[in-house]
């Protein structure tokens, strides 16, 4: 079997990226007089393994996309669906503190999310400007255009909902099919915009030459953003519990908060350790081995 035919065992995308290199290596190895049957068997095995790996990776990417979309839908949907009622509902003084605390937490979570996303952009700004100056805009133009379009649609939806909830009472909102459809459509637009911006950011990041400090800051910024975004769900639930005088909603909200309180410090701690390792690696010879210890796990 000719070496070029061996490449057929690999997926097409892999062949396009690594095919020529692998052929050169096979040729070099054959020139050394290695047993060809073992080499060919190894290449075939590698090709089959690559096909399995790509299939598994595609499945994981689909699952990750679906879970991110679902999470965004829960956050956006719960906020949009509850906000008008929560704002309009009169509360007895005994539960007013609960409403105030949940509202403050909600505003705080949105503010922190916005500030951290902005900070992430500022940290990457010098590398992004350099990327644009080198003519990189055409590489990301379509993705950015789609994301901007979805953002405009989400903004229009939010404006429509705002006007609707100002002109209607709680009872009218409850019975308005148009308003309900608007909440669903706006939630879908927010999910689409989030997904498209994430896709555009991922595609752009592949081209950026980030400074070490900027690269080291990204894991922490990502963990704080996710924590703040996740905090929106329990804040909404506790607010809803105050408005509806509902013990079950309060229990679910507090349970969400407890889970977040357990998961978030671990997530942020891991991001801090990763940032330290990245900074240490920038000056390879100054790596502190004790800072590298992860008890058998090297998370990158």
């Amino acid at each position: 079997m000719k070496p070029t035919r061996l490449l057929r065992w690999y997926p097409r995308t892999w062949r396009e990226r690594y095919g020529e290199e692998l052929l050169a290596l096979i040729q070099d190895t054959l020139d050394e007089g290695r047993p060809t049957w073992r080499l060919r068997l190894g290449v075939i095995w590698g090709g089959l393994g690559e096909r399995v790996h790509q299939a598994v990776r595609a499945g994981k990417a689909a699952a990750k996309g679906a879970s991110s979309g679902w999470l965004t839908a829960v956050i956006a949907g719960s906020t949009l669906a509850n906000l008008p009622w929560n704002l309009k509902a009169p509360l007895p003084p005994a539960r007013a503190w609960q409403k105030t605390a949940a509202f403050d937490a909600l505003v705080g979570a949105f503010a922190v999310t916005g500030v951290v996303v902005l900070a992430s952009g500022l940290v990457a700004a010098p590398a992004f400007i350099a990327f644009l100056r080198e003519g990189g805009w055409p590489k990301i133009r379509r993705r950015v255009a789609w994301a901007a379009g979805a953002t405009v649609a989400a903004g229009a939806g939010l404006a429509g909902l705002f006007l609707g909830q100002r002109s209607m009472s709680s009872a009218e909102l409850s019975h308005s099919g148009t308003y309900g459809a608007g909440v669903v459509a706006t939630t879908v637009a927010i999910v689409a915009a989030s997904g498209l911006w994430a896709s555009a950011a991922t595609a752009t990041a592949k081209h950026l030459k980030l400074a070490t400090r900027a690269r080291a800051a990204q894991p922490l910024l990502g963990a704080v953003t996710l924590t703040a975004a996740l905090a929106i769900v329990p804040a909404n639930l506790i607010w809803l519990a105050a408005t509806e005088s509902s013990l079950p909603w309060l229990v679910v909200g507090v349970a969400n908060l407890v889970v977040l309180g357990f998961v978030s410090p671990r997530m942020i701690g891991r991001a801090v350790r990763l940032g330290r390792r990245l900074r240490a690696a920038s000056g390879r010879m100054t790596v502190n081995p004790s800072a590298q210890r992860t008890h058998g796990r090297h998370r990158f």
């Binding site: 990245l278 690696a281 790596v287 090297h298 990158f300």
Partner: peptide
């Protein structure tokens, strides 16, 4: 740099 960090971590554990 992440590769260097991963290698340093793995070698420290092995050591």
């Amino acid at each position: 740099p992440p590769g260097s960090a991963a290698l340093a971590g793995a070698l420290a554990d092995m050591r």
